[in-house]
Design a protein around this nucleic acid. Structure first.
Lengths: 151, 151
DNA sequence: ATCGATGCAAAAGTTTTGCATATAC
DNA sequence: GTATATGCAAAACTTTTGCATCGAT
């Protein structure tokens, strides 16, 4: 469920960002942000997002190109982030939730999220050791989830 | 530089594998394996590999489809492994070297490798906690490498 | 001689781009 | 009214597939 006040804040920030870059606030842009925010546990391909909006808002005109263009925009603004899960192209997720990593089930494709302090700290140490200015990281454990093991 | 004895062993294993699956040993398959082995610090797209072979062995006939087909084969045999580095499609690397993770420079695209025991152990703990049967993992620290910071 | 492998070209997917029109400002 | 955004269709890529021919066994 959507926390209205939080969403309103994010939407306000997004509008602000658009204004400051002389970009326009459109229904399409809002819907794309909204879908990703409302499903902040989801990981979507651009096509997923396109289909979701087409289904939920059939009255709104929307082209796949707009989805790609908006996702790029939202990613640059750090509102969403993209991850390559290896198999099929890039997937996007809401980027303003707390940092976390992923457990990817190779059987059913389901993605679980986790956060581990020890790993986070260790990553910083490694970056330091390599004199590397870390801006982000991705960690993904692949395997078979508990549900699929039981099958 | 190539450690001949080691390469011969790997090649022998590959031939063995082909035989046991009733597959054929071809010049194309050997060259693809060889290029990846000889550049075991490299991370290549299928097209990179295609171009490298075309350039180094212009006399050998080779189609891009064969590169894709052979990479799939080598990956199934665990001789090479593929990683999605996010930006452009999948990249392949020699898969029989010691396990390691990656530091990816967002400016120059260079990839450094590292290994960290603490992180490895922690990953196992997490998998256990989620009752997840881990088969592999990928971890990637993104940022700016020391060389690019100096620029 | 047989059966799998290959190159090529076509097809299928995915992402980007050009352009006329629509819409936010 | 002006400038940006959009949809659509075409283009550009990337990856896969079908098929006639080639080549390893």
């Amino acid at each position: 469920m959507r926390i209205e006040t939080e969403y309103q804040e994010i939407l306000e920030d997004f509008k602000q960002l658009l204004r400051s870059s002389k970009l326009k606030y459109t229904k399409q842009r809002e819907l794309i942000l909204q879908i990703i925010y409302d499903n902040d546990d989801g990981h979507f391909t651009p096509e997923d997002i396109y289909n979701l909006i087409k289904k939920s808002y059939p009255q709104v005109k929307l082209g796949i190109a707009t989805v790609y263009r908006t996702l790029t925009l939202l990613e640059e603004a750090n509102i969403v982030s993209s991850i390559s899960f290896g198999v099929q192209g890039k997937k996007y997720e809401f980027g303003l939730k707390e940092h976390h990593d992923h457990l990817v089930c190779l059987k059913c494709g389901r993605i679980e999220e986790f956060f581990d302090k020890t790993i986070e700290k260790q990553q910083e140490k490694i970056a330091k050791k390599f004199n590397f200015k870390m801006t982000g990281h991705i960690m993904k454990i692949t395997g078979v989830c508990s549900v699929c093991q039981a099958k």
